[in-house]
Amino acid sequence: MKQILSRHINTLKESPKTLILVYVITYFLWGLGMNRFGAEMEIARFTYWWQVITCYILYMVPVSILLKKYSFFEQYAYGLVAMGILEFLGYWLKTSYVYPENMLDKLFNPQNFSLGMALFFALYFPAGNWLVDKIHRLIFAKK
């Protein structure tokens, strides 16, 4: 277990600072946008705006970096576990607010809401890794 943890920490430490910066900026803006979208559409939102930092930057960025070497489907599968835990804790601890009778509740029913959210947000890992890679290459490509 110690070796696995040590390997993951080394992966994070060895990531280029420019890549981490692109992750942080991209995920922060993405998180703010999704939180705003969820509130405007009255689906769900964070209880506090700063949770974008804790969830998207402090949680999702490291997970994304650790998953980036895997295939799309492996990133999605591992991401589903990571997002399942995050979604469960967010609703259980009431740090995420779900609007009553929102459009997703009506479509899928309330019992499937958090599962649907986890299934959707697990796509962030392969999609985010693809997007960050494209942005990073565009800005920091060696000439």
Rank of each mutant, 00 (worst) to 15 (best):
I53E: 02
I53T: 04
C55F: 10
Y56C: 01
Y56R: 03
I57N: 07
I57K: 03
L58A: 12
Y59S: 05
Y59A: 06
Y59P: 02
M60L: 06
M60H: 01
M60N: 00
M60V: 07
M60P: 03
V61H: 03
V61G: 05
S64G: 14
S64V: 03
I65K: 08
I65L: 13
L66Q: 00
L66D: 01
L67Q: 02
K69Y: 02
Y70P: 03
S71A: 04
F72R: 05
F72M: 06
F72K: 02
F73M: 12
F73L: 15
E74Q: 15
E74S: 14
Q75F: 10
Q75H: 05
Y76C: 05
Y76F: 11
A77W: 09
A77R: 08
A77P: 03
Y78T: 08
Y78S: 07
G79E: 00
G79Y: 01
V81K: 08
V81Q: 11
A82P: 06
A82R: 03
M83Q: 08
M83S: 09
M83Y: 05
M83I: 06
G84P: 01
G84M: 07
I85T: 07
L86A: 13
L86I: 10
L86F: 14
F88V: 11
F88G: 04
L89Y: 12
L89D: 08
G90K: 05
G90N: 00
Y91W: 01
W92N: 14
W92I: 10
L93S: 14
K94N: 06
T95H: 06
T95W: 07
S96F: 13
S96M: 13
Y97C: 06
Y97I: 08
V98S: 13
Y99V: 11
P100G: 02
P100E: 13
E101L: 15
E101G: 13
E101A: 15
N102R: 06
N102E: 04
N102G: 06
M103V: 14
L104N: 05
L104E: 06
L104T: 01
L104R: 03
D105M: 12
D105E: 12
K106Y: 10
K106L: 11
L107K: 11
F108N: 08
F108T: 12
F108G: 00
N109V: 14
P110C: 10
P110V: 09
Q111S: 14
F113E: 00
S114M: 14
M117C: 15
M117H: 06
A118I: 02
L119M: 11
L119P: 04
F120N: 12
F120L: 15
F121A: 13
F121G: 08
A122G: 00
A122F: 05
A122D: 05
L123E: 04
L123H: 09
L123W: 00
Y124F: 13
F125W: 05
